[in-house]
Write a protein that binds this DNA or RNA. Structure first.
Length: 654
RNA sequence: ACGCCCAUAGCUCAGUUGGAUAGAGCACCAGUUUCCUAAACUGGGGGUCACAGGUUCAAUUCCUGUUGGGCGUACCA
């Protein structure tokens, strides 16, 4: 039996051999011919546009189509070809095709759709990269899901994937929550309070910000500064006014006004920070941390462990896994050596104050394509006191990654706001002559933002939607829905099923949007369970399982499905859809997980239509029942394979 | 100011290297449960693919410009 891949190549070959004879030898790449699904108004199953052929033969595509159709003789696979304008409609032998699809799925099972594209190649995927001062929010959820899904898709395509997480466990933001805990914590622990570790620490991060604001108000009063005009609401309203203003002059004036206010605000902010007691204390704590002060280090260790334990729970629920964790506290000084080496080789430059920089021109030379139109500034690589910046750390970590593993590719799943940073990083790695530098790749995705007027997602200001809370809220709703009406899920299963349903909704919601789009998330609106959603796909799967439970016998795995009994157009459409799965997986592999989502939604839609129209179990006709049960198995397997790439587990009942 | 990304139905989004009549879901209207799970299905209305040019036999898709939005241009990470 032909497998799917073989089927399509054979179809192409058959079409070609017939016209190759006609035109004699001709230079034409078979891949240029696309076998597309024919539009619905056509009776044919597939269609081939003849424009590329026409170009090569220097004939009109209409003529080419006609000539090929005339020359073609029917075969086992193809019944006939028909020219419709510049298109060649392909009427296939449906049974041969359907048998081939079914056999492919039944043979490959949970590997159906996989490929060997990446065989022998090892790729590292860095994702998540959280700060250890606050719990994960909806923005991190997008990163985690994208990173995890890309990893799974790569693995399915034969790559060896190493998932890593770079934990940002060091820096002033960490010290802020530490300081707040020291001041106001009164020895609270996750155990004593019953709070999840990351949430507990997050509360102190928020607390620091609140106290800092208080201090700022007091300072403003002391120096007689009116903060009222710097109020966010006030500026936001002004901005809204400006947007709506149609008069150009007026608009300009408003813009100037806003910009002045912003400048004024910034100046005051600077002045305040320079005089802020809390800020000074936090800075002091960071210095002590860097000096290895025992007390500070032990507090840091304690709180970080709390947070990491909390993250572990969230990762486990989301289905995120890592082969290795890198900690910034271990890696942040690693890059220094390379920066100094680069300086020695004359790649970088030392400024008078002692700091080390890479010149913009040098970067442009190293990666002319990346910076073609970019107005680039020199980039700091090492501070004058020899301490590291973000870039230093990333150089070191990249080198460490390639010391730990031999990598063909190294991906960074990080939000698009860091596009420039990674362009520079990769150019610097290139300059330093690392042979693996060209394997580095940034996989950017759009941020999750709040609706207009709600500002930015900020944990410390309470505008973030907490990941754990969101999942729990959704799980509660899922359970409610399961218990509503006829309950099919056993009491022991309800907890597990509710969580799976909730996660399917969350994951599909996030992953259905292409990576280049910003996702707007309104915290006041819930993620739905109806329509084009994860639960709707799980529901289709559960319905199929319901059929299997009810069926008296299931198809014999050894025997092939009698596809000659599957005569409805819905049945053909379903198998045609199934046949597209392997290609969908391949295109998804190019950082397009959303294509997999829309594929699964279409498959679900096809199945639901079929389910509504035909009955699978037919008491009077066992042969037909078995054939349809076989079809259902094939569809269920495809749904399961697709969902598993998205990290979604199926349920048998819901 | 400059650079990058985005703009498709009232709303949220698909549309895989340019190809046949631009598709879903939500919302709205009208239907479908003696029949394998109604978290479903069937039908209906709803589009100048932001705008203006250009390239092409063919443009939602590629190029240029304009407008609107997001992000970036830190000795923050």
């Amino acid at each position: 039996m032909l497998n799917l891949n073989g089927y399509f190549s054979k179809v192409k070959e058959e079409i070609f051999s017939s016209f190759k004879e006609k035109y004699g030898s001709l230079e034409f790449d078979l891949d240029q011919l696309k076998i597309e699904k024919a539009p619905e108004k056509e009776d044919a199953e597939f269609g081939i546009p003849c424009f590329p052929l026409g170009r090569v033969l220097k004939k009109s595509p209409v003529q080419v189509a006609t000539e090929i159709a005339e020359a073609f003789e029917a075969s086992d696979l193809i019944e006939k070809l028909q020219a419709v304008g510049p298109y060649l409609n392909v009427y296939i032998n449906r049974q041969a095709f359907m048998a081939c699809v079914c056999a492919s799925v039944r043979q490959d099972k949970n590997r159906f759709g996989s490929s060997f594209m990446g065989k022998g190649k090892r790729v590292m995927v860095e994702y998540s990269s959280p700060n250890t001062n606050k719990p994960l929010h909806i923005g991190h959820v997008r990163n985690n899901l994208v990173g995890m899904t890309i990893s799974r898709i790569l693995e399915f395509n034969g790559y060896e994937v190493i998932k890593v997480n770079l934990i940002n466990d060091r820096g002033i933001h960490i010290c802020k929550s530490m300081l707040a805990y020291e001041k106001w914590g009164e020895g609270e622990t996750p155990e004593s309070s019953g709070k999840k570790g990351d949430h507990l620490v997050g509360e102190y991060y928020v607390r620091f910000d609140r106290e800092l604001k208080k201090e700022k108000e007091e300072y403003a009063t002391k120096v007689g500064f009116d903060q009222g005009t710097l109020d966010k609401e006030f500026i936001r309203k002004k901005r809204e006014d400006m947007r709506q203003c149609s008069d150009k002059e007026e608009k300009k004036k408003l813009r100037q006004e806003i910009s002045d206010l912003a400048k004024k605000g910034e100046a005051f902010e600077q002045e305040f920070l320079a005089n802020s007691q809390y800020t000074e204390e936090a800075q002091g704590m960071l210095q002590k941390w860097e000096q290895g002060d025992e007390d500070v280090r032990s507090l840091w260790k304690k709180m970080n462990d709390w947070v990491l334990a909390g993250f572990e729970d969230t990762y486990a629920i989301l289905g995120c896994e890592f082969e290795k964790l890198y900690f910034e506290s271990d890696t942040y000084t690693l890059g220094r050596k390379f920066v100094e080496e680069g300086l020695g080789k004359g790649l970088f430059e030392r400024y008078k104050d002692g700091s080390i920089w890479v010149k913009a021109e040098k970067l442009k030379e190293a990666a002319p394509k990346s910076f073609k139109k970019v107005q680039l500034n020199d980039k700091l690589l090492l501070r004058k006191d020899g301490t590291s910046v973000y870039m230093t750390q990333d150089i070191g970590t990249a080198a460490l990654k390639n010391e730990d593993y031999t990598l063909d590719r190294s991906l960074y799943v990080v939000a698009e706001e860091q596009n420039l940073h990674f362009k520079i990083l990769f150019a610097v790695l290139e300059m330093l002559g690392f042979p693996w530098a060209c394997g580095c790749e940034h996989v950017p995705y759009g941020m999750v933002i709040l609706p207009r007027g709600m500002g930015k997602i900020k944990s410390r200001e309470g505008t973030a939607v907490d990941a754990d809370d969101l999942i729990q809220e959704m799980k509660g709703r899922a359970e409610e829905k399961i218990r509503d009406g006829e309950v099919r899920v056993s009491e022991e299963q309800i907890e597990d099923t509710s969580l799976k349903v909730a996660l399917s909704a969350l994951k599909l919601f996030m992953l259905q949007v292409s990576l280049d789009k910003t996702v707007q998330f309104d915290p006041h609106e819930v993620i739905e369970f109806y329509g084009d959603t994860g639960p709707a796909i799980l529901y289709s799967y559960a319905r199929i399982q319901g059929i299997f439970r009810k069926a008296e016998i299931l198809p014999d795995e050894e025997k092939s499905i009698d596809v000659s009994l599957l005569t409805t157009s819905e049945e053909f459409a379903l198998l045609q859809m199934v046949s597209e799965f392997p290609d969908t997986v391949k295109t998804a592999c190019n950082y397009n997980p959303h294509l997999l989502v829309s594929y699964l939604l279409t498959l679900k839609k096809n199945f639901s239509s079929y389910y509504g129209k035909e009955k699978v179990i037919n008491e009077d006709n066992q042969a037909l029942t078995l054939a349809r049960l076989g079809l259902c198995q094939v569809v269920a397997q495809t749904i399961q394979n697709g969902l598993s790439l998205l990290g979604i587990e199926v349920v048998d009942n819901m």
